[in-house]
Write a protein that binds this DNA or RNA. Structure first.
Length: 150
DNA sequence: GCCAACGTTGGC
DNA sequence: GCCAACGTTGGC
């Protein structure tokens, strides 16, 4: 069992949206490192910290779970999609995704500023300067530290 | 809206 | 294979 953090802009897809739909295919990841985490690292049942980015109160807002193995992201073949990739074909898919299921919403947002103040989270990838990855690995210790803040 | 960071692209 | 230009992310 491994742990991850996945970012989402709440204007586009929030923890409340995930709660409403239950399970969501995580379409639109177009970064190789993030893709590789989904393809090579994630297994069904892995824990996911759901993080709201680019919003008034960035932070971890709840918990989700990896709900499938990785499979090709269908939006890469869709000419009308923002995520269309002309170099991807069904024979040679370039982008993968996993399904993500809602587990629970935190009572409150554990904000980015609060995370930065935690000595236990020293070295956490989310807090590194210039980090832009939308999917990050989380250690068990980091997971426990963040759950303990709620 | 600004800007730092950094990934990607494409010319050479 | 280098590297400048460009685009995107995301906090503020």
């Amino acid at each position: 069992m491994h742990y991850w953090l996945m970012k989402s802009e709440p204007d586009a897809f929030s923890i409340d949206d995930l709660e409403r739909v239950g399970t969501e295919p995580w379409t639109g990841v177009r970064n190789y490192q993030a893709r590789n985490f989904m393809r090579d690292g994630m297994k069904p049942g892995d824990g996911v910290l759901f993080y709201h980015s680019s919003c008034p109160e960035p932070g971890v807002v709840g918990i989700a779970e990896v709900a499938s193995e990785a499979y090709p992201d269908p939006t890469q073949y869709d000419r009308k999609s923002d995520y269309y990739d002309e170099k991807a074909t069904p024979e040679n898919p370039r982008w993968m995704l996993v399904d993500v299921s809602f587990k629970r919403k935190f009572r409150r947002t554990v904000g980015l500023d609060e995370l930065r103040r935690q000595a236990k989270l020293e070295g956490f990838a989310l807090l590194q300067r210039g980090n832009r990855l939308s999917i990050l690995p989380v250690t068990r210790a980091q997971w426990n530290a963040i759950l303990g803040l709620e």
